[in-house]
Write a protein that binds this DNA or RNA. Structure first.
Lengths: 193, 193
DNA sequence: ACATTAAAATGACCATAGTCATAATTGACC
DNA sequence: GGTCAATTATGACTATGGTCATTTTAATGT
């Protein structure tokens, strides 16, 4: 299994060096060749691991979303609204680890969502996780029974992603969280009530 | 003013030929040089009009959004929810004029939103228009007074854009409209009511 | 008409993402 | 430990987006 180990190592090396360089010089100012030199591999090798330069950014989101279940477990208490807000906060914090890459990363996530149409994309995973949360709440709380969980979860994802996108330039986590709060208030209580 | 006329002509020629070629061969398979040849201009000239190839896609959204006020006027009757649904429907129909470009166009709109941060971008315009609609409704209808119109409008844009994005691959307008309807039902009545 | 200046067009040029035929490495099997 | 097949690495090469110094064209003034 030497081969598989090497592959994993190379892959991780590429990601590590690429992100380090992106942080340092900005995504656009880093060439693929530069990344491969940092890794001590040939340029062509890069494309054996990632079909396009941008796919590294996608990987970042993968990592975030892999922590999703963990993040959901972090806040098992409180009302559904509180839990959702906590989850949003955690995800925002993770995203803010690479503030300069936030916008680009989101763009790529969206792109892949548009292009793939598959169930396996990250936003779909997020939606499924939220839908499950709503389903659980339905057991305890009559008030949620009216709605299809998946549609409701989809709204939450709509709000999360698009708010993040429009706010990503200003990069202020707390402002963003306030906006989330206000939006959740509205959809919880109903726009026309 | 010969100069300005020529400029306008060239600009329009580029847009016209570019979109025709995109429809015919797909965005990725059309080179800038190809576009300029079709227009009978030099390659460099293209970049005097559009800083990047992708900016042509942005122009498409500009056109759509310029029709926004017109679209809003089209349905002055009915409840707010009905009006919003009508507006969504009209916009979806406009977008579906270039079904193959829909995804790309949206991607670019989002990109520019992320990058510019200015008030002048198209999504912001959409939001402002919707906020105004909500404000008007507030005059007649007590029930909407609780909420900040801008935040509420922002939710509607979140839903519109992100639903469009996730659904753009399947390209089925009616499915999309049904989804809009379900989502609006939820946020109108309130998720937890 | 001619000269001067400003705007716009041009295309040779460059940088770099991505390809691909070839070479090197690995694992399996005898 | 030698042979073969499959996998992975390599880097010369190609294609194309985008730049920029130079040239052309339009507008203004005399």
């Amino acid at each position: 299994m030497l081969r598989e180990n090497r592959k994993k190592q190379t892959r991780e090396s590429i990601i590590k060096h690429a992100i380090a360089l992106f942080k340092q010089k900005g995504y656009e100012n880093v060439t693929v060749e530069e990344i491969t030199i940092a890794c001590g591999i040939a340029k062509g090798t890069f494309f054996n691991y990632f079909p396009k330069k941008e796919h590294i950014l996608l990987y970042i989101t993968d990592t975030y979303m892999n922590r999703l279940n963990e993040v959901i477990q972090l806040h098992p208490e409180g009302s559904l609204k509180e839990r959702v807000l906590h989850i949003f906060r955690e995800l925002v914090m993770i995203y803010f680890k690479y503030p300069d890459l936030l916008g680009l990363t989101l763009e790529e996530t969206i792109r892949s969502t548009v292009r793939t149409e598959t169930e396996s994309n990250n936003l779909r995973k997020f939606q499924t996780a939220l839908a499950q949360l709503i389903d659980e709440e339905k057991e305890n709380n009559e008030r949620f029974k009216n709605w299809d969980s998946d549609t409701a979860a989809s709204i939450l994802v709509d709000i999360f992603i698009h708010t993040l996108l429009t706010q990503s330039a200003s990069l202020h986590a707390e402002t963003m969280m306030e906006l989330f709060q206000r939006k959740l208030n509205i959809i919880w209580e109903g726009l026309a009530r």
